[in-house]
Amino acid sequence: MQLDGDVVSGVINRLRRVEGQIGGIIRMLEDGRDCKDVVTQIAAVSRALDKAGFAIIASGLEKCIAAGEDGQPDRAQLEKLFLSLA
């Protein structure tokens, strides 16, 4: 799948930040940090992953889905893809 280069760069940067955040969460758990702080960071990671997924979908939705016989994207596949991020 070919996506816009700016979108790919943005998603990669976001995923690298998420990677760092996950490392931080692991350290927080190892250090016995407060549960509320850990959960807050997990929620932030979850939102960042959602945003990365939505950016990919918004940029290349038609490229992600095989066109039906009429040349239009398969709506059932589109719905499934969106719901996978819900």
Rank of each mutant, 00 (worst) to 15 (best):
A86K: 11
L83Y: 02
A86H: 03
I42W: 07
R16F: 06
G24M: 08
E30K: 15
K63F: 01
A52Q: 06
R17Q: 08
E30N: 10
Q21V: 06
S9W: 05
M1K: 11
I26R: 14
Q77S: 07
D70C: 06
Q77W: 01
E69K: 12
F82V: 14
D37T: 10
A44V: 09
K63W: 00
A55R: 03
S9V: 06
Q72H: 10
I57P: 03
V7K: 02
N13Q: 12
G20I: 08
A66M: 07
V7Q: 06
V11I: 10
E30F: 09
A48S: 15
G32S: 08
G24A: 12
E69M: 04
D37P: 02
I42S: 02
I12P: 00
A43V: 07
G24K: 05
R14M: 04
G71C: 04
I65L: 04
G24V: 12
S59A: 13
K63N: 15
F54I: 11
S9A: 10
G68C: 04
F82P: 02
A48W: 11
I12F: 00
S9G: 11
R47F: 05
I57T: 06
E62C: 09
E79G: 02
P73Y: 02
R75V: 09
I25Q: 09
K36N: 13
V11M: 07
D4P: 08
L49Q: 04
D34T: 03
S9N: 15
A43W: 01
V39Y: 04
K36Q: 15
G24R: 05
A67D: 05
I56C: 12
M28N: 04
L78K: 08
K51W: 06
K51A: 14
F82H: 08
I22K: 00
T40E: 12
V38I: 14
L15M: 12
D34L: 04
L61E: 13
D6T: 11
L15N: 01
G24Y: 02
V7N: 00
L29T: 09
V45M: 02
E69P: 14
S84I: 10
R33I: 06
G20N: 12
Q72D: 11
V38C: 01
N13R: 06
G60Y: 01
G24N: 10
C64A: 14
R47E: 14
I57W: 01
I12V: 15
E19Q: 13
R17W: 00
R16T: 10
A67Q: 13
C35L: 10
G23D: 07
D50E: 15
R75I: 13
D4S: 13
L29I: 13
V38Q: 04
A67R: 13
G53M: 03
E79P: 00
Q77N: 12
L78V: 15
R75M: 10
S84D: 13
M28S: 05
I57D: 05
D6C: 07
R47A: 15
L49N: 07
L78F: 05
P73W: 00
R14G: 10
V38E: 01
V18T: 03
V39Q: 10
I22V: 15
M28R: 03
M1C: 10
V39F: 07
I65P: 01
F54M: 13
L85T: 08
V18L: 00
D6R: 11
L29E: 13
M28V: 09
G60P: 08
